[in-house]
Design a protein around this nucleic acid. Structure first.
Length: 276
DNA sequence: TACCAGGTAAAAA
DNA sequence: TTTTTACATGGT
């Protein structure tokens, strides 16, 4: 059987909220109470089960991808111990107990997803991104495999513009598809070097680099200070709703060290599911 | 109808 | 060097 036991606490509904919050994601598709994703051409379904989740089918490769989607790399107990000392986080940790932020298993998907989300609302970003997936990805069951660099390398800028990409974003995505970063190498580099490597590419700025650290590499101290959603959450939870600069949010990150990544996710999810 | 939304690069000052 | 502008879509 495909039962994957998970360290407790684990809350499937809260942890997967992000897959439902901004409309469907064809590569990480919520369907009838479960999450569908294509792994090596096969559709995998993950659904809640007592003591963990049911993963069908299940093999070593699928277990690895599922572990990413389920945020298993995050250790909640040390974070909750830390959160107890912060009034806001203590409340969010209690209300969102068992939230493990989902990680993006595929680095290219993670970066391209960020490009689509630059500047525009997440609803608009998902709409454009889904059209890219339908056009260049491969369907297996309900979900699609997100396009690989090779799937996009031969595309024309006009093809992506026709899907709703700006001319600029189409350039960024195609340049990355034709000359991908060395993803395996990035896994072993320190945060600041990863950020340098990413920012060296046209169209990839600090915000994109920070989310890559947070959502693909699961770096504990990743803190996307430039993120509009995080700025709103910090403002709402800590500053009484007043406007806050990117610089101020970045500086505030140090008080959450070394749990900035989990803090960011609890604040963002907290704003959507709990409120202030 | 405007305006804003989980940025970034390039032009203009 | 710092500030302003263009970008394309979807929701309100």
């Amino acid at each position: 059987m495909g039962l994957l036991r998970l360290p407790q606490p684990y809350d499937f509904e809260i942890s997967t909220e992000r897959f439902r919050a901004f409309g469907p994601d064809l590569a990480n598709l919520w369907h009838e109470g479960g999450l569908h994703r294509v792994v090596s051409g096969r559709e995998v379904r993950i659904e809640p089960a007592p003591g963990g989740v049911l993963v069908e089918p299940l093999d070593a490769e699928i277990e690895h991808a599922a572990g990413k989607l389920l945020g298993l790399e995050f250790e909640l107990e040390p974070f909750y111990a830390f959160a107890a000392g912060d009034e806001v986080l203590a409340r969010l940790a209690a209300r969102l107990s068992g939230l493990r932020p989902p990680l993006a298993p595929d680095p290219f998907e993670s970066i391209v997803g960020s490009i689509t989300a630059q500047q525009v609302s997440l609803y608009a970003a998902f709409a454009v991104r889904n059209r890219l997936i339908e056009r260049f990805g491969r369907r297996a069951g309900y979900a699609y495999a997100f396009p690989n660099p090779a799937d996009l390398a031969g595309a024309a800028e006009d093809d992506l513009v026709a899907l709703g990409f700006s001319r600029r974003k189409a350039e960024y995505v195609l340049a990355l598809a034709r000359d991908p970063l060395d993803w395996a190498e990035l896994e072993h580099l320190p945060d600041d070097v990863v950020k340098e490597r990413i920012r060296a590419r046209r169209g990839l700025g600090e915000w994109t680099a920070d989310w890559f650290l947070a959502r693909h590499l699961a770096r504990p101290e990743a803190w996307p200070a430039g993120d509009l959603g995080l700025r709103k959450a910090v403002s709402a939870f800590y500053l009484g709703g007043r406007d806050v600069s990117i610089e101020e949010v970045r500086e505030m990150g140090s008080r959450f060290a070394p749990f900035q990544n989990l803090t960011a996710h609890y604040l963002l999810t907290g704003l959507r599911m709990v409120g202030t």
